[in-house]
């Protein structure tokens, strides 16, 4: 799929304002402003910073995963299984500690489960060279199915001492939001300023050329899948802490939202382009849009419709912008 990237020729340098402003992140930022204004008109109860923060904690776990997913997409792969991974890791974690394993050990088991899932995806997509999009549709069903076998329809309680990550405040901001912001800064720096970051872009733009340039594309991609697996597991356990219990249907359908965050933030579906900043902004955009509609008591169906339209508009716009600009 990566070889369909449009070929770019040399062109005169663009003016600075053009480079800074004509990019997908600008679109995301504009949509955030439109979303804020629109939601405030829809409901007088919307515009409240602490409410928006609290609402963000409901999707903070998914947003953290979306940041890593962005890097996977930039490298030219995709993973649709992290939502199912979150559910399975959380179920494994809750199940193990329910069976009497000490809490810290149970957390490690949960993280290892996530790592194993990442490894399965990496094995199928990189080692066996199967398209990651189909592989991860398979693992998405598989992981969710395993969670269903482990937990059945029951919800497994987690101990009181583990509950309440969302109630911890850091300077008035819920802890999950703080973690999300810190993750965004760290990953943004890795992707934007380090050698590995540059290599991720190169692999996504043209894997063949990257190989010739001596980049070990396979190792980097495997690393990204493993990282995504572990981060999904951590996110799954954060959700368990927020909810106080775990069921197999945790963040059911969350893969759509995660891909949506990456796309809305301007990540190019064929790889090679995108930024952490974009996904960071898109995560806020989604919260603003869905919270605005919920607090206005709109039919949830309208939200589904809007999410679908947003995804399609986002990819059309991103393709359009990338077709006219150069990195």
């Amino acid at each position: 799929m990566t070889d369909t990237t449009p070929t770019r020729e040399m062109a005169p340098a663009r003016p600075t304002w053009h480079v800074v402003l004509v990019r997908p992140e600008t679109m995301t930022l504009l949509l955030i402003i439109i979303g804020l204004v629109g939601a405030s008109i829809l409901s007088p109860f919307f515009l409240d910073a602490s409410y928006i923060m609290r609402s963000f904690t409901l999707t903070a776990e998914m947003s953290i995963v979306a940041l890593v997913l962005t890097m996977v997409i930039i490298s030219g792969e995709i993973d649709l299984s992290p939502a199912a991974n979150m559910a399975l890791s959380a179920c494994v974690f809750a199940w193990v500690q329910d069976a009497g394993v000490a809490l810290p050990l149970a957390v490690i088991v949960g993280l290892l489960a996530g790592l194993a899932m990442g490894a399965l995806n990496a094995f199928m997509s990189i080692r066996m060279q199967l398209p990651s999009i189909i592989v991860t549709i398979g693992t998405l069903i598989f992981f969710r199915g395993l969670a269903q076998i482990i937990a059945g329809d029951r919800s497994i309680r987690v101990p009181e001492s583990f509950v309440g990550i969302n109630a911890v405040m850091v300077f008035g901001v819920p802890l999950p939001v703080v973690i999300f912001v810190l993750c965004a800064i760290v990953l943004g720096l890795v992707l934007g300023t380090t050698v590995i970051g540059r290599q991720i872009y190169q692999i996504g733009t043209n894997q063949q050329a990257a190989l010739h340039a001596g980049i070990n594309a396979k190792r980097i991609k495997v690393g990204l899948f493993l990282l995504l697996g572990v981060v999904s597991a951590a996110a799954g356990m954060m959700a368990a802490s927020r909810l106080g219990s775990v069921r197999y249907d945790l963040v059911l359908g969350g893969e759509l939202q995660m891909v949506l965050m990456a796309m809305l933030g301007g990540t190019y579906i064929f790889g090679g382009r995108g930024t952490i900043l974009g996904t960071f902004l898109a995560a806020w955009l989604l919260v603003i849009v869905s919270t605005g509609m919920t607090v206005a008591n709109l039919l949830p169906a309208i939200q589904l419709t809007v999410l679908g339209i947003l995804l399609i508009v986002a990819i059309i716009a991103t393709n359009f912008i990338y077709a006219r600009t150069q990195r």
Binding site: Y51, D249, T294
Partner: peptide, 25 residues
């Protein structure tokens, strides 16, 4: 009276709706 409900019946889907009602007071 107002009726709201999530699109699907999974365990956590009602939470944003509850948060919104709290916010609405």
């Amino acid at each position: 009276f107002e009726f709201v409900a999530p699109a699907t019946a999974e365990a956590t889907s009602q939470i944003p709706f509850l948060e919104a009602q709290i916010q609405r007071g």
